[in-house]
Design a binder for these strands. Structure first.
Lengths: 146, 146
DNA sequence: TTCGATGCAAAAAGTTTGCAGCGAA
DNA sequence: TTCGCTGCAAACTTTTTGCATCGAA
C-alpha cells in the first residue's frame, strides 16, 4: 500500500504537491530537512511552498509513514520506518546514515524512575569519509551543532 | 577544580553573572533550558540577560564542563559530565532523567560506512509518572515534539 | 458541493550577533 | 590598561499559523 493510498485512506486528499513530496521522500537512505525537500520538490513543481512541505511531512509523520530525526537542532525526515534502525550522523556536515548496531540496551526497572517506556533513539556521532579527510588535511569546515 | 577555576584557567573571566549561572547549573540531575537557567539566575540577579546565559553555557560547553542535550528541538544543559550516562525523556513534558542502561551497543565496521566514530547519544522515550497518570485519566496534555 | 490543501505572509520560538560601555585580571 | 564580558536590541533560522482561494473526492 503506497504512501499516497494511506493518505487517501485516512480521509486526507492526494494533491499534485503531495505526490511530488512523496516521490522526493521515496528511497532507502533518505534523510532530508524540510528545506531540502522543498528544493527537490521545486525541480518538478516550482510553485510549491515551504508551508505545504511542512503540512505534508507532518501528515506523513502522523500516519507513521515517515520518522522525524532530530539532528543538531534540525529535523530530518526518514521514510525508512519498516525496519528498526538507528542513525549515524556526521558532526561536520550533518549527513545521516541508517545503521544496524550489534547488541542492545535495556533499562533496568530501578533505572526507570517510574517512567513508562515507549522507545529509544540512538544516534552514533562521527565524521563521514569526506569530512574526516578534509579535517586531516587541516581544513576547518563548518562545525555542526551537537 | 571548580567550574569557575576552569574558566579562569582558560583565560576566561569570572564575573558575577557567570558565578550565578554556575551555581544554577550545580547538581546531579539538572537538565535546564537556557530560559530556565535565566529564570533561576534572575532570582539572585534580576538584571542578568538571556544573551549572557547563552554566552556562558556555550563557554561551559566548549570547556567540556556541561553537555548539551537536544530534546525535542530544545537544548538542555547537563552538568553531569563525569560519569557516562544516557537520558530518559518524558514525551509529554520534556523532563529528563539521567539513566545508566544495561548492555551496550557497538557498530560493526561494516556498518560504519567509512565514518570515524567519536561517540553516541542514547535517548529513552517514555512518560513520567505525572504525565502517565494524567494520560490514564484521559487528559490530553501538551504533546512534546519527538 | 464540501471541506481539506495550498500559497503567501506574518508570527512564533530559540539562538546568535553587533555594539558601546563595563570591569576582571 | 587591556580585552573579554555584559545588556540590549536586532538579526537569523526553523517551524507554525491565519486566511482567502483552490480543487480532490
Amino acid at each position: 500500500m503506497s504512501l499516497l493510498d494511506r493518505l487517501r485512506g485516512r480521509g486526507r486528499r492526494v494533491t499534485a504537491q503531495r505526490r511530488v513530496i512523496a516521490e522526493v521522500l521515496d528511497g532507502k537512505h533518505v534523510h532530508l530537512t524540510a528545506d531540502e525537500i522543498l528544493r527537490r520538490a521545486r525541480r518538478r513543481m516550482p510553485e510549491i511552498s515551504l508551508a505545504t512541505v511542512y503540512n505534508t511531512v507532518n501528515a506523513l509523520v502522523a500516519l507513521g509513514e515517515v520518522q522525524p530525526v532530530d539532528v543538531g537542532g534540525r529535523v530530518r525526515y526518514d521514510p525508512n520506518v519498516g525496519a528498526a534502525h538507528h542513525h549515524l550522523v556526521c558532526l561536520t556536515c550533518g549527513t545521516v546514515r541508517d545503521v544496524y548496531p550489534r547488541g542492545r540496551l535495556s533499562l533496568p526497572k530501578g533505572e526507570r524512575g517510574g517512567y513508562r517506556l515507549v522507545g529509544q533513539d540512538v544516534v552514533f556521532k562521527g565524521y563521514c569519509p569526506r569530512c574526516a579527510g578534509a579535517q586531516a588535511r587541516g581544513r576547518p569546515g563548518h562545525t555542526w551543532r551537537p
